[in-house]
Design a protein around this nucleic acid. Sequence first.
DNA 1: CTGCTCATAGTGGTCCGACCACCTGGCTGG
DNA 2: CCAGCCAGGTGGTCGGACCACTATGAGCAG
Lengths: 246, 246
Amino acid sequence: MDDETAPQKGTVTQRAIERIKAMIGEGRLEPGQRLPTERDLAVQLGISRSSMREAIRALTVLGVLEARHGSGIYVTQLEAGDLLETFGVVADLSRGPQLVELLAIRRILESTATALAAARITPDQLAEVEKHLAAMNATDDPEEILAHDLAFHREIAAAAGNETMAAILEGLSSRTFRARVWRGYQEEGAFARTRREHAAIHRALAARDPEAARAAAAAHVGEVEQWLRAQLGPQDRPRARSSAAT
Amino acid sequence: MDDETAPQKGTVTQRAIERIKAMIGEGRLEPGQRLPTERDLAVQLGISRSSMREAIRALTVLGVLEARHGSGIYVTQLEAGDLLETFGVVADLSRGPQLVELLAIRRILESTATALAAARITPDQLAEVEKHLAAMNATDDPEEILAHDLAFHREIAAAAGNETMAAILEGLSSRTFRARVWRGYQEEGAFARTRREHAAIHRALAARDPEAARAAAAAHVGEVEQWLRAQLGPQDRPRARSSAAT
DNA sequence: CTGCTCATAGTGGTCCGACCACCTGGCTGG
DNA sequence: CCAGCCAGGTGGTCGGACCACTATGAGCAG
């Protein structure tokens, strides 16, 4: 039953990763399904358990597999949230100009999501948004503000109806990412401005006005984007396309 | 629900991953820099080489580290292309409604990128775009058409000047992803329409008209999006492994 | 009969030590 | 001086042992 067409490309572990990915892609492994044990899988693919474990670990961090100690290995639901969890790593490790680019992407997606939300949001969801808006304005604790700020935008993204987009925005708003950028931003007394912008977003949502919502969200993220761009400007040297920077 | 600063949080491997990620985030490890050997790292973190290897493998698939057999382990340049390579996995493993959501995101980003490109594209880049456009129209081989189609959009994304966005679009246009969707789409005689849309995009770029470019690109991707949405509509629950519709 | 406890088998998690495949850089010999 | 060889170091692979945890069901108390 073993098809001997060993192409000998790359490491055994890499091949094992591809094999399992292919199995899922071909539908031979359904979401939520349990896989054979590590030991069995290793035998099936003709590799050692160590190598198989590395492959499983890799697919685990990618959000494709989930290992439960003492129980077994399972395929995740393969939903946007599972697979895009790694997107946070990008946000966490990006620096300088790349951070600005990420913020630009967030501006584009967030403005679109907010516009969609304005057209689709339910009264319940709107109430939830208002709850976080009020909570955000009722405290001075930066930690709490940040938490409600995140929830505010998360709720809006969810109301947009595109789970994948919401998952990406979630990654672009990870705590560490916002903490790194927001810290300096808010230290410049941007609280008042942030409040106004949040109020404007909420107004547009309540008015079911997609275009106003798009504009308000774009301005909101754009403010931070421009601030960050200015922060980088002073120490900015003319970077050529060469990647020899160290 | 909140994880405290417990000394023994998750698995040792998971902790090692976080440790290394933190080292990079704090700047203690610069892009391109070489890490200590697996054996030394294992000793430093007080874990076995096996566990350390799993951590390294995980960071390798995330595009953070790069292992060179016989040479050592290095930090990647941490550029968009490195870190967003995993984005292709999302596109490859998504199915059904999630595929539509991904196309919606591509429509949003691609239209914005094309609009930006219309304002910034250089004559050289425009010539490159035209080259792929001509090559695409000069052949009937689907493989070749697909290749030039990809290059056409890649060149435009590059001209937009946001490498991160280009990397995401690259992931959303991976060969397997497009092969899965485009195949059925093009089988319905959409070649002519695709040609018209590509021509419209190029016209807008040559005219340096961002709004026209945005509209043309949005329509281009939107066509496929609507087609795919229609494909999913008729069937009630296409959850099983449908070998025909893959 | 019901409900609980707990022994146990099976699973993933960790560690160790050995060996292989590959790259690098210094050394040798021309 | 240079080309080629060679030895050391590196990541890659393997097999086995043991630990930590879970799930199951047999057996006991109620």
